[in-house]
Structure formats: structure tokens, C-alpha cells
Design a protein around this nucleic acid. Sequence first.
DNA 1: TCACTTAACTTGTTTGAACAACTTTAAGAT
DNA 2: ATCTTAAAGTTGTTCAAACAAGTTAAGTGA
Lengths: 245, 245
Amino acid sequence: MPKSKYESIYKDLKLKIESGEFPQGELLPSENSLIPQYECSRNTLRRAIARLVTDGYVQTIQGKGVRNIFIPVDQASFAIGSIESFKESASRNRRAGSTQVLRFVEFTADSRVAARTGFSEGAELYYIQRVHSLDGKPLILNHNYFLKSAVPGLTAEIASRSIYEYLENTLHMTIVNSKRVMTVEKITQIDEKYLELDVNDYNCLAVITSHTYNSDGVMFEFTQSRHRPDYFRFQDNALRRPAIP
Amino acid sequence: MPKSKYESIYKDLKLKIESGEFPQGELLPSENSLIPQYECSRNTLRRAIARLVTDGYVQTIQGKGVRNIFIPVDQASFAIGSIESFKESASRNRRAGSTQVLRFVEFTADSRVAARTGFSEGAELYYIQRVHSLDGKPLILNHNYFLKSAVPGLTAEIASRSIYEYLENTLHMTIVNSKRVMTVEKITQIDEKYLELDVNDYNCLAVITSHTYNSDGVMFEFTQSRHRPDYFRFQDNALRRPAIP
DNA sequence: TCACTTAACTTGTTTGAACAACTTTAAGAT
DNA sequence: ATCTTAAAGTTGTTCAAACAAGTTAAGTGA
């Protein structure tokens, strides 16, 4: 149940592209031919197409049309430019995901934690350490910090299922954006233990550090995700913009 | 010389945010107060703000306003959700970048290369192997494949400066979007040699594989970038969208 | 004082229109 | 036949307007 018209058009076009209804590499029907189909204004249709562009599904060419450049992805992958929980990723890839909570503590941020996470000193936080497994294989070791005032009532039981589901469906919080930084770091003993890694094999892993904001503009989550290197895969679609003069 | 009005407004607001003209964490002036300043329509202003949202600079909150959530980045970083050449990254970070061309060959894609790169079999290609250094330290080992028909006249000399500058300024090609996949891979002997790495230290590196398209919708470049892990840093801003039902 | 309602102000969505810029096709002149 | 020009069709930008939806503050009543 999409709330807006352009969003339902976007989803419909996306589905048709994914299902191969529009030939790959060819031009889509022109705006003027799509407008009567969707019974919308030109602006609304163009808004839907603009999102397909940022998704890397199509390419608009002035004077010519809109080219379908969709390439299906076969491998399991995470986080295609959008925020996705582990549970959502698992179900999207049709795999059996499970989560084990290693630690669940409540504490107050000191200066060291504040500097590292971006929370203010003295903030009441949850710290949660979890391992996400896919088909029984541990893939991700997560260190989550949640702002207690923004995420009240969090429990280890909820953390073992899906925190995002709790945030959105129970607390009715709206997650909006997430600033992420990807790096490669050396394996720690903790990684080695819980991700069942062997230093003689891989001695590093992929680390995604993220600051996440809700619709009130409050940074309520800081997370460090440590990914098994041999299963880590991160997709992206970048748009080239005029260089800064 | 921005060609469009919304783009110049976007750049102006971006500059004001970066320079701290708008207090961090606070709301920006409302649309109705900005419209007379920029002498534009509401749609045009909103379009500029929409880009600031995707950049992760601001956060719009319905009924309240637009919150400045910009956090300055101190460390050198590459490719913030946009396509950027090594030369541009270096100059943005005010560092001295240099490029060494290791190999420059022309060849025809066989079935193996076609499968790996996505080019069609029999396509005439350039293969270029380069090392990018920052302040004399080798950081990136690049394997580039360019479609000869789309990028004619490429030489090793051009490759040692900036290929993108040649594409955009000489060939007047417009680069549009790039599909990227990030993974972590084990170091090869070639990596070890040219990136001056020690297997006993790090034994993996960050790999970015990208398919890049021009404004004609032609995939003209396939590149594998192998990054020194201790200097690799990739930034991103992700937007949460309603989950697929 | 307190709770409720209303009004004002904010961003979000949709429509319609006009013109610009670019590409392709068709028509015309040589 | 060939080149030039014009027209039609495409996406790109900008404007103006109206209403919806959410937040805040002021006002009103008890």
C-alpha cells in the first residue's frame, strides 16, 4: 500500500523491468505514452523515473528516451544503497537467517565512547553484541549502540529477532538515513572466535560503521558491522555529476 | 558555471552548510524564507534540497523543517556516492597524486574476458594496468578495460595523466552512472609487488569492481580497483525506504 | 491552571503549463 | 542522389497553484 502515486508507479515500473517486460538495453516507452497508462501528470511520472535512475535501473538520455540498463544479480548481496536489516537481506536472498545475542548491557557513555560513536557524553545507551548467521554459518559480528531515550524498552529477546522491526512496527519510529563508512580492518580475537575464522586464512575483514538517524533528526544508532571477508559483497550505483570548478 | 538554477542553489546551500553558516543540528530557514532569497519557485528550491538529502547533508521533517545533519570529514576518503577519478579525489583531499602505467595493451575479448567483464565476445578493448600513489605511497592497483569503439585514441601517455579528463574534455563523452561492487579479496603476488604490501601484515585488500556507462547507455568501462586496506575508506549515505510487502 | 480547539506555519504530493535542449525523421532544395 | 532545412518527438528545467499532512503556538473554554 504505497502512500503516494509516484511511488506506486515507481514500484510498477521497477517490477516490469525486473521481470523483463521491457527489453534489456532498449528504450522504455516514452513519457507521453506512459502518462495515460498511469493516469498521472508528467511530473509525477518523471519523479518515478528519477528514482529508477538513482537505483541504476534506467538511464535517461535527453532527446532520445529512457534506456533500460538493468542487470539481474545472481549472488547474495547486502545493502544496495538502501538501509536494510539483516533479516530483510536474508529473506530477499531467500536464505535462512538467524541471530545470536552475545551481550546486552545498558550503560552511560563516557568521553571515550562519546568520541568514538558520536553520542554525547553522559547519554544513556544500550550496547548489543550480536552474531548473524546465514544457513548456520556466522557471517556478521555486530556491535550496536542505541540511544535509550529514542529506543525505549529494548530487550535481548527483541535483539535476537529484529530490532528494526521493533523500531518501525512497535515504536512506530521512522528510520530515515544512515551515514556509512566502509573500511578493511585486521581480525581481532573476538572476530576469530565468533565468526569462526582462521588468521592463517584471512587476517582481515570488512567493517561498516554507520550513524543512523530517525525522522526527528536524532542520531539514535551507532553500529559497527564486521563482515566475514569471503561472504562480504556490497553493491552500489554511483551517479556522475559535473566536477567542481 | 552551473547550467541549471536548482544546481546553483544546491551548490550555494551546500557551501553554506559546509562552512558552518547554518548551525549544525539545527533547522535551516524554511522554504518560504529561502524562495525570495534565491528568486525561484518552490519546486526549484525543493529540488536543490532533495539533492542535499541524498548527499546526507540535511534531513527533511514534515511539518517541522529541514535539519542540518552535516558532519565534516577529517580523513582522506574516496568516492562519496559519486563517481570520482583518482585525480579529483587527490585534489579534493589536497594531496599530491601520481599515476604509473604498468601495462597498456590492445586486444580482443575472448569468451573468458567477456564473461568476467560484461563486454561482448570479440569486442576490441584497451587493457590498462596502473598504480595510483598518494604522497609517493602506492595505494591503488587498477585494472581497466575500455571499449575501443567508445574511447578511441587512448594512449599510455593519457592514461598516466587522467583518462576521465580525456574522455570528458577531449572526447566530450558524458559519463553517467557506474554500478559498483565492493568485496574483500586475498592479496596476489602482483598486489604485493606494486602496492608494496607484506603478506605477513595484511593478507587481503578491498576490491571495487565497476561497470560504467556513458550517456548513450553504452557500457564503455570495466574496472577492478584493488585498494591498500590500511588506506581504504569508502563513504556512503543510505536512505531508508518502505520495505517491500 | 489545565485541557482542548483552532489557527498558522512547516514540508509532501499532484496537477498543468510553457519553454529549452536534444535527437530523429521527414520534407524540400539543389 | 545528396545535402540542407524544417518539423515532430523526446527528455530537461522552471514556474504557479492547490490541497494534504504534520508540527507548533496561540487562543478559548471550563
